[in-house]
Simulated assay, not measured.
Amino acid sequence: MSGPVMNNITNVAKMILATGLLTLMAACNAASDGGAAAEPPLAGANIGGTFTLTNQDGGKTSEQQFKGQYRIIYFGYTYCPDVCPVDLANIMLGLKQAEKANPALIKKIQPIFISVDPERDTPAVLKQYVSAFHPRLIGLTGSAEEIAAVAKKYLIIYDIRKDEGSSEYLVDHSRQAYLFGPEGEPLALLSFDGTPQQVADEITRWVR
Rank of each mutant, 00 (worst) to 15 (best):
residue 45 A to V: 07
residue 101 A to Q: 09
residue 114 I to A: 03
residue 66 F to M: 11
residue 66 F to K: 03
residue 74 Y to E: 10
residue 70 Y to I: 04
residue 83 V to Q: 13
residue 62 S to Q: 02
residue 80 C to F: 00
residue 52 T to N: 09
residue 79 Y to S: 14
residue 85 P to V: 05
residue 52 T to C: 05
residue 84 C to R: 02
residue 67 K to T: 15
residue 72 I to R: 01
residue 46 N to G: 00
residue 41 P to L: 09
residue 92 M to K: 05
residue 74 Y to H: 15
residue 44 G to D: 08
residue 66 F to R: 02
residue 106 I to P: 01
residue 58 G to D: 11
residue 81 P to G: 07
residue 88 L to D: 07
residue 62 S to P: 02
residue 35 G to E: 01
residue 107 K to V: 00
residue 40 P to W: 13
residue 59 G to T: 15
residue 40 P to T: 04
residue 119 E to Y: 09
residue 34 G to R: 01
residue 53 L to N: 07
residue 95 L to C: 09
residue 114 I to V: 15
residue 53 L to H: 02
residue 63 E to H: 14
residue 89 A to G: 15
residue 95 L to D: 12
residue 78 T to I: 13
residue 72 I to Q: 00
residue 89 A to E: 10
residue 84 C to G: 10
residue 108 K to C: 00
residue 54 T to A: 09
residue 96 K to M: 10
residue 71 R to S: 12
residue 47 I to N: 12
residue 98 A to T: 11
residue 38 A to I: 07
residue 84 C to W: 05
residue 36 A to E: 13
residue 65 Q to A: 08
residue 61 T to S: 08
residue 61 T to G: 03
residue 110 Q to W: 15
residue 92 M to W: 06
residue 74 Y to F: 15
residue 117 D to T: 10
residue 94 G to R: 10
residue 60 K to M: 15
residue 73 I to R: 02
residue 96 K to C: 02
residue 92 M to L: 01
residue 93 L to F: 14
residue 109 I to F: 06
residue 50 T to M: 07
residue 64 Q to N: 13
residue 71 R to W: 07
residue 104 A to Y: 00
residue 78 T to S: 04
residue 54 T to L: 05
residue 111 P to K: 08
residue 96 K to E: 13
residue 94 G to V: 04
residue 110 Q to F: 10
residue 40 P to D: 12
residue 112 I to A: 07
residue 86 V to E: 03
residue 69 Q to Y: 05
residue 99 E to N: 07
residue 63 E to I: 03
residue 73 I to N: 06
residue 78 T to M: 11
residue 50 T to Y: 14
residue 67 K to V: 13
residue 93 L to I: 00
residue 92 M to G: 09
residue 64 Q to T: 15
residue 103 P to K: 06
residue 82 D to T: 01
residue 94 G to P: 01
residue 98 A to R: 11
residue 46 N to C: 05
residue 68 G to V: 04
residue 42 L to M: 14
residue 59 G to P: 04
residue 59 G to N: 14
residue 90 N to G: 14
residue 117 D to F: 07
residue 112 I to P: 04
residue 74 Y to V: 11
residue 37 A to W: 07
residue 48 G to V: 11
residue 97 Q to L: 12
residue 87 D to Q: 11
residue 87 D to P: 01
residue 34 G to T: 09
